[in-house]
Design a protein around this nucleic acid. Sequence first.
DNA 1: ACGGCGGCTGTTAGATAGAT
DNA 2: ATCTATCTAACAGCCGCCGT
Length: 274
Amino acid sequence: MKGKVEEYLEYLEKEEKSIATRKQYGRDVMSFLRFAGGARVTKELVIRYKENLQKAYQPASVNTKIAAINGFFTFLGREDLRVKQLKIQRRAYCSKEKELTRAEYLRLIQAAESRNDGKLALMIQTICGTGIRVSELSSITAEAVQSGEAVIYLKGKTRSILIPGKLRKVLSAYMKRLNIVSGPVFITRTGRPVDRSNIWKMMKSLCACAGVKPSKVFPHSFRHLFARCFYAINRDIAKLADILGHSNINTTRIYIISSGREHRRHMDALGLVL
DNA sequence: ACGGCGGCTGTTAGATAGAT
DNA sequence: ATCTATCTAACAGCCGCCGT
């Protein structure tokens, strides 16, 4: 089986799977083969592997690993070895450990300003003001700011998002100050778009100064804050899905599920317990 | 020391194929 | 036609090295 892994990866490439997927699958298949340790692969063995995974990983992670080896078995023509994924119930509320409030957001911006990191303050506001993903930040170009519209290509599709007027104004001023006339607005001294791991690091470094729990501060939490604020104001989930670039409303629902606190309040408000 | 940058593992967001 | 299971692609978190 080991010899077939290379072929499997080549096959995935021909199937136009992305590099990230191929790397993930390659790693997962190899870790299964290490578990098998050269023994003949049987359904029982695969099931035992699955049980082992469950002890060490989150259910969702177990499922990605199963997806990888299932694909491998199908590639080998061994459908009989495929195992079922774990079932996961959708959460009705999210933990408040991760839910960033508006007040905390403002404190973070202030913290960035006060340490003269205007770039970071603007990057955060750009993500939060448009709802884009951190990897989409490089799509915010000088051209996009001028036209007020950014075209984003990700997850195999393109979409365009609007840059709100106020944000355009502050970004223009920033660009003028740094003499940026084309290409991505947020660049490093080498001229390349700021790397996401650095954005992550910078955001975390603001926490102590702003008095915000670090667990709440990471690039995606600002996208969530955008979604919650948007929904709180106009209650239009279909429109929100368009802006976030979701082709499926179910995905959008993840963003607006109420916090545990709010969920509890709603349930108390029912008044069914005397 | 400090930001830039690449890379690794585990987790989650999000699209899609297939069942109902 | 809609919902769900499955699959895929990205993010989170972290580390280590590098050049300034």
